[in-house]
Amino acid sequence: MSTLLARALDAANLDLLLLGALADRMRAAERGDVVRLHLDRSTEGEALDNPGNDAHTFLRRVATARLTSGGPIRIDAESVGLQLAQVALTFGADELVVPIEKLSLEVFGTEEKRVLRERELVGLIRSAGRVARIVERGVERDPDETTPAQRRFRAPGRDVARVDQGDA
């Protein structure tokens, strides 16, 4: 059934933004405004990727996926690029995979930059008008709920953070 619908949508060759608007309505009705941000690849399920430059076809795929299958539509932001991945959220997608652990080791090195990166990603979701939830090692959390690493980083001085930890 869904393959037939996908073929019909493909044949109808709807205008990109019309297709996107349909998918976005369906996403809002089915999935609400929450976007799950996976910081690793531990969750099962396929993520849509786009290694080339053809963003147009990619967004059509995202919208068609939303219109033809229920459940989460997940974007591999690493291959798609963060800018286009964010745009995909308005074309029916509701999950992003950005394996930050790997990035943090290979690119950032330090924990502080990792926290900055996480906030940047949450900001990306919020500026698309959506609500972010972080999923890491299979555990889902609210991004505003601080982890011990963030507490150390956010404290005005490291001494204060140490006192906090001492209390705990």
Partner: peptide
Amino acid sequence: SSTPKVAQIGLS
């Protein structure tokens, strides 16, 4: 400035 991908979508 906006990457080729976003520029392409910009045409819509």
